[in-house]
Write a protein that binds this DNA or RNA. Structure first.
Lengths: 186, 186
DNA sequence: TCGTGACACGAGCGATCGCTCGCATACCAT
DNA sequence: ATGGTATGCGAGCGATCGCTCGTGTCACGA
């Protein structure tokens, strides 16, 4: 039954949008009574939160899997494959990505997002610190910049569908990451 | 009176947040009657829209001014000063920036934001096309990546206040931009 | 001085919201 | 067969929303 509610809430969010996602509508789509929602969830916020959590966890798992399996490869390969994997993961449910990033006020799930981002940032910082040689810059600083850059660009690429070929985009973003890590030319 | 309403709406958005910003609350803070709102605006959405528009226009003006006055300088200088100017412009009203980026659902002012971003992207693409030499990549592609990168990183820097010194951040972001434009090393 | 029109007022309308609670039902141990 | 319990139901509560409209006020031209 919990599954049924989550499924219905997911569909309502996709089809009707967050602003029109009322508890009664979720219940009707799930084929149950409004009252039954509250036997399994504390309220509307908890329902939406659970849907977002499921999406977020699924996304995190995909990305983490792709990232950790390639850690041993050359830097270029790690960067390229990570970008490609992230792109693929985001494309898996682009509609939900749009709901989360464009309809839900960020403040509603800020904590979850920040935690995830900090976790990834920490992971990348650790990876960078273990790599020799990079430029003389704090790994935390470089990781902070790069994680947010890759996240933002891949998300916008999926949602805005710019007229940039997919392989060009992946290659350019990879280059952006690697170029920033190389020693300065001056 | 229009000014008074906009001012009140601005304050309510900052203090109470978007979710709690009702028309009655805006009217009360403006010291006028709810009915009077509708002699000057079509509805709540129009009021919020006008507040966001004012903020957006002000921001665009600051950035455009800083960017166009430095167009003649060396590439390094243009990049560095543009980043610094954008950072300063965003810091001017950081609270409103937080409201716009974290409380308002992006979909509500998506059109305005996309238009502004596309305009800046076009400007940067034109600038890049006029510069010799850069890597063999479409100026539109490079501009697309760089504009979104700089925007996202400066916004997150202002709102998340990471433990990165300001001059280090500006320098690193500038380096990120320049490194991506330099010829590949291979 | 007086008629008039523009403006501001604010109680309250209709709609919608998240949510509750008394009731019906179905299942199971006794 | 029967009593107890857990569970789903759905009408409707109270609150809040954006918004309206009948009313009062006042500045101003005739």
């Amino acid at each position: 039954m919990v599954e049924r509610i989550l499924e219905a809430a997911h569909e309502v969010l996709l089809v009707e949008g967050h602003d029109a996602a009322s508890t009664n509508r979720i219940a009707r789509r799930a084929g149950i009574s409004p009252g039954s929602l509250y036997q399994y969830f504390d309220g509307k916020e908890a329902i939406v939160d659970a849907v977002v959590a499921r999406y977020s966890d699924d996304l995190a798992a995909r990305v983490a899997a792709a990232f950790t399996t390639n850690l041993g490869a050359r830097g270029e390969t790690v960067a390229h494959d990570s970008v490609a994997a992230l792109l693929a993961a985001l494309e898996a449910d682009a509609e939900m990505l749009r709901v989360v990033t464009e309809q839900l006020p960020l403040a509603h799930h800020r904590e979850r997002l920040v935690a995830l981002r900090d976790q990834v940032t920490q992971l990348v910082a650790t990876y960078l610190a273990a790599q020799r040689p990079t430029r003389a810059v704090e790994p935390e600083t470089a990781a902070w910049l790069l994680v947010r850059t890759v996240e933002q660009l891949t998300v916008r690429y999926v949602l805005d569908a710019p007229s940039i070929a997919r392989e060009v985009f992946v290659s350019e973003l990879t280059h952006l990451v690697l170029a920033h890590l190389e020693p300065r030319r001056t």
